[in-house]
């Protein structure tokens, strides 16, 4: 970090970022700061640009205009390989390597970073506990795992090299509600205990409102709402209203049933 930079640090900072794909404008002039230690949910209708916004942070997508900074550094100016090894990344498809064991999958980034095998093995043991998987799973292959177990391994892999920032793209999207709640709880604990900064993409606004400390709503490539869950519920923006109507209605019906 440059010594001259004395501004309060945002871990991730988007400034006037635009991304085009062909003639399509995926993101238009987005400015957003994510402070260290925050848990921010990115939500919006499908095609709103939330995944693109996420992937800008580890330069899987390059900005056509504007700058993206990670820990104060312009991501366009650093080696993307180095950048990505500093940042945890987990996606809905999980993308475990089918020819690697669970232990090898979890220790992938530490291996890339050149950790010795003893240190990697110790880290794998810690992470299996952290994501609540039995130690015996270390030698299994991904094909021997259930969807929930695979998601846990994917989360453990993202956390392996002790990143300060975790990028999650619908990481629990395909799971049953119970497993999903349990993993989301786990994530909340990790965020609190390890001061982990989390950027979570989800299309499920109820999820975003109940899990995150701050929710950013995107619509057609623009940020249309940005605030705490309670601020958001009060928002009058039509796009936010549209997103929020259905979960609130669902909650009312459930509340009526319980009462």
């Amino acid at each position: 970090m440059p010594a001259a930079d004395t501004r309060p640090q945002s871990l991730v900072a988007y400034a006037g970022v635009s991304v085009r794909r062909g003639d399509n404008r995926v993101l238009a002039n987005v400015t957003l700061a994510v402070p260290a230690g925050a848990f921010v949910a990115l939500t919006g209708a499908s095609g709103a640009g939330k995944t693109t916004l996420l992937r800008l942070a580890n330069r899987l997508v390059a900005a056509d205009a504007g700058t993206v900074r990670f820990a104060g550094q312009d991501v366009a100016a650093v080696d993307p390989v180095w950048l990505r090894r500093q940042i945890g990344y987990a996606i809905q498809g999980i993308g475990l390597f089918p020819h690697w064991t669970v232990a090898e999958n979890i220790a992938a980034v530490p291996w890339l970073l050149g950790w010795d095998s003893a240190r990697r093995a110790a880290r794998v043991r810690t992470l299996l506990d952290l994501v609540e998987l039995p130690q015996g799973f270390a030698d299994r292959y991904p094909r021997q795992l259930s969807g929930g177990q695979a998601s846990r391994v994917g989360l453990a892999r993202a956390l392996a090299a002790e990143p300060r920032l975790l990028l999650l793209d619908e990481p629990f999207g395909a799971l049953d509600p119970e497993t999903r709640a349990s993993l989301a709880d786990r994530l909340g604990v990790l965020h609190r205990d390890q001061q982990l900064t989390v950027l979570l993409v989800t299309h499920d606004l109820a999820d975003a409102l109940t899990r995150a400390e701050r929710v950013v709503v995107l619509d057609a490539g623009r940020v249309v709402a940005d605030g705490t869950p309670s601020q958001l519920v009060a928002s009058a923006h039509p796009a936010v209203q549209a997103l929020i109507a259905s979960p609130i209605d669902q909650a009312r019906r459930l509340a009526a049933l319980v009462a």
């Binding site: 999980i94 390597f97 089918p98 890339l112």
Partner: peptide, 26 residues
Amino acid sequence: PPETLDAADGMGMTRRQRLLQVELPL
């Protein structure tokens, strides 16, 4: 699978590592 390639890129594999460690074995 594209998600496997995305995971390999996202974790910071170089092109060469992705090819040798992931694409060719699969």
